[in-house]
């Protein structure tokens, strides 16, 4: 039996809010950790300002091990750890942990590859001025790579929306959960349709925001 709209709407609004919350929280943490890992990858690679083969190979291996694991599987694998750290493995808050873990390594590669794209000459100029290595990383490389970085992060944001829906089906909240519990299990096509519309809207908004930001940074 299908529920009335006045019962459904509050659930839909709540679910959309949860999705936005999960995605933004994950984006925040993944950006922090991912940027750190990405900088470390870039700095320790051959010819990097803190060249260190051991650290680079270890990090790179870690990233390559974690990234190919499908999101759904990753959340399930990380379940015990999530329960340990967050107190529970179910719910919107709990799922932010495994999502952050996965996204961190994605962000790391985005950061690394965009830093590699920065003209080596710019780094040389900074070195010639007597700039310290850590300053070169933070005040030269990151600002120089910011334009493409913003676009890369926009890609990540869109991927996270997709990711959050998957998380919603295995314990997380949000529109993914709603789509399964109401759309799929109750055969309510209207909920499915609304869910899809919400997702399209979110992705559009994310891309628009990313494009605007990168245009501002790149001044084009």
């Amino acid at each position: 039996m299908q529920q009335d709209w006045d019962v459904l709407w509050p659930k839909i609004v709540d679910a959309a809010g949860e999705t936005v919350y999960m995605v933004l929280a994950t984006l925040l943490f993944a950006t922090l950790f991912g940027t750190a890992v990405g900088l470390a990858l870039y700095a320790t690679r051959k010819g990097g300002v803190f060249q260190n083969r051991l650290v680079f190979v270890t990090l790179s291996f870690l990233v390559n091990v974690i990234r190919p694991v499908p999101a759904l599987i990753a959340i399930v694998i990380l379940n015990p750890l999530t329960r340990e750290l967050m107190g529970t493995a179910v719910g919107t808050d709990a799922v932010i942990f495994p999502m952050t873990v996965i996204a961190t390594f994605g962000v790391a590669r985005i950061v690394e590859s965009n830093l590699v794209g920065v003209e080596p000459g710019v780094i040389e100029a900074a070195r010639a001025m007597g700039t310290s290595r850590i300053r070169i990383l933070l005040t030269v490389l990151v600002p120089e790579a910011l334009g493409p970085l913003v676009l890369g992060m926009t890609f990540m944001l869109v991927a996270l929306i997709d990711f959050s829906v998957i998380a919603g089906t295995v314990g997380g909240g949000g529109v993914g959960n709603l789509a399964i519990t109401h759309g799929y299990l109750r055969f309510d096509d209207r909920v499915m349709a609304v869910t899809v519309l919400i997702l399209i809207g979110l992705v559009q908004a994310a891309q628009l925001l990313g494009n605007m930001l990168s245009r501002k940074v790149l001044r084009r």
Partner: peptide, 13 residues
């Protein structure tokens, strides 16, 4: 010791 370069190497940002 200042240094200048063929490709200028200015900070675009």
């Amino acid at each position: 010791i200042g240094m200048i370069f063929q490709q200028f190497n200015l900070f675009r940002s």
